[in-house]
Design a protein around this nucleic acid. Structure first.
Length: 413
DNA sequence: GGATTCTTTCCTGATT
DNA sequence: GAATCAGGAAAGAATC
């Protein structure tokens, strides 16, 4: 732990000079203007000392293992979940307070892999600060042992091979303090349960863009820099850009920006432990082949490519796109409707190697094909849903229902 | 390089 | 008549 701590301290994040592709979970940010120190309450510090179940809720570590968190309670912060989804919270609760009616549920900003990059700097009414909870999917290709990449569902990054993605000192969130475990349990189930937004993150530029989950990458500089004074311009709900000017108005991060960024090999939910097909050549058969693994993708193994259903899900989770481009018909049932079919298709084409020839007809064909695979499902009949442009997520898709709060501990299992 | 998954492309016909 | 849906077939890309 101490060594890990040292590593973390040595590897504080430089946000100033690097262009970081972040996989942001909740870019519906909370603008507020207040001093950071105003945000810390004595109650929170007491909670940290007395409530040992705050962090174990995440299944990551216990207070005993992370006494340093308590030590740092005075300089860290937790927000309630409502804070993250309510743009009005700061207005309602007054400057200097992020609290609202709910006082009992501090929402730790930690999910595995989270990195809280918020900066409460100076009060600036013209440029209000934002709190951004960022899902950092990180990878250090040079530092990850090959065998670690092959572990499967539990992608372990050891402290020897990889520093914590968090532990960015004052920029860190709690979860990051757990070090290697933070990343260890990152899995597709967690990722897919959160609406990711691609952000080009630098000192001068922090703009959530079209949801992209292709680059689950993270630049991790070695040097420590001074706190970042963010200058950013989030696109607000009132600034929904026109398609004509810039598809979605989102900043496209060109591939070259990510060219040297290592990719994290994420494990999927279903494939890694599945056996081969029962065609007589499966693993563990009684023949002499049992010791020899057949190369190639296993039957039933889910590809790690960015799937169409993920793209659509991410569109639905992006306030820039939903409901202007695509909208829910019934979120609880996973039924959505494509509003601007050709624009959605073009976006999909851009995501897939910038194909410009993508049409809604082709995309919808993929959707129909995906029905057979279970990523989409047939619309329920006799419920009045329009037949055109209306689709339903299938049982193999996940993460689209943001109205259903899934316990994080469950996600880890 | 083969096997598998997923997507794309093209097509015809039906439906809205 | 246009847009969309449905699905077959084949091929390509990605992955392992």
């Amino acid at each position: 732990m101490q060594r890990n701590r040292r590593l973390q301290n040595q590897r504080k994040l430089s946000l100033k000079e690097s262009s970081v592709v972040l996989n942001s979970t909740r870019a519906s940010l909370v603008p507020h203007t207040c001093h950071r120190t105003d945000l810390f309450s004595d109650k929170r510090a007491q909670d940290l000392e007395s409530e040992t179940d705050i962090f174990p809720e995440l299944g990551l570590f216990s207070m005993e293992e992370s006494s340093d968190i308590a030590e740092n309670a005075g300089i860290q912060k937790a927000l309630k979940e409502s804070d993250f989804f309510n743009r009005e919270v700061s207005k309602d609760s007054g400057e200097g307070s992020m609290t609202s009616d709910n006082d009992d549920g501090f929402q730790e900003l930690t999910s595995p892999g989270d990195l809280l990059i918020p900066m409460w700097s100076e009060i600036d009414t013209e440029h209000p600060e934002y709190i951004l909870e960022v899902e950092v999917i990180s990878s250090w290709a040079d530092g990850i042992e090959e065998e670690d990449q092959q572990i499967g569902e539990e992608f372990m990054l050891t402290e020897e091979s990889c520093p914590s993605p968090g532990s960015t000192g004052e920029y860190s969130d709690y979860g990051s303090e757990s070090g290697n475990e933070t990343v260890a349990h990152l899995g597709e189930s967690i990722l897919s349960s959160l609406p990711p937004v691609k952000a080009d993150y630098s000192a001068e530029n922090l703009i959530p863009t079209a949801p992209v989950r292709v680059e689950r990458t993270f630049v991790y500089p070695d040097t420590v820099t001074e706190p970042v004074n963010l200058k950013h311009e989030f696109v607000t709900e009132n600034q929904v850009p026109s398609i004509e000017t810039n598809t979605l108005g989102c900043q496209d991060i060109s591939p070259q920006n990510c060219i040297n960024i290592p990719k994290l090999e994420l494990t999927d939910d279903s494939g890694s432990e599945k056996s081969y097909s029962n065609d007589g050549d499966s693993e563990g058969s009684s023949s002499g082949k049992s010791e020899r693994k057949r190369p190639g993708r296993k039957k039933g193994q889910v590809s790690r490519v960015y799937h169409l259903w993920e793209f659509i899900r991410d569109l639905l989770n992006d306030p820039l796109c939903c409901p202007s481009l695509i909208r829910w018909e019934n979120e609880a049932e996973g039924i959505f409707r494509v509003v601007r079919s050709e624009d959605v298709a073009k976006l999909w084409g851009q995501k897939k190697k910038n194909r410009t020839a993508m049409t809604y007809e082709k995309m919808s064909r993929s959707i129909r094909y995906s029905r057979k695979e279970g990523y989409f499902a047939d619309l329920p009949k006799d419920k009045g849903y329009p037949k055109k442009l209306c689709f339903k997520f299938g049982e193999k898709s996940s993460g689209w229902n943001t109205t259903m709060k899934t316990p994080k501990t469950a996600l880890l299992n």
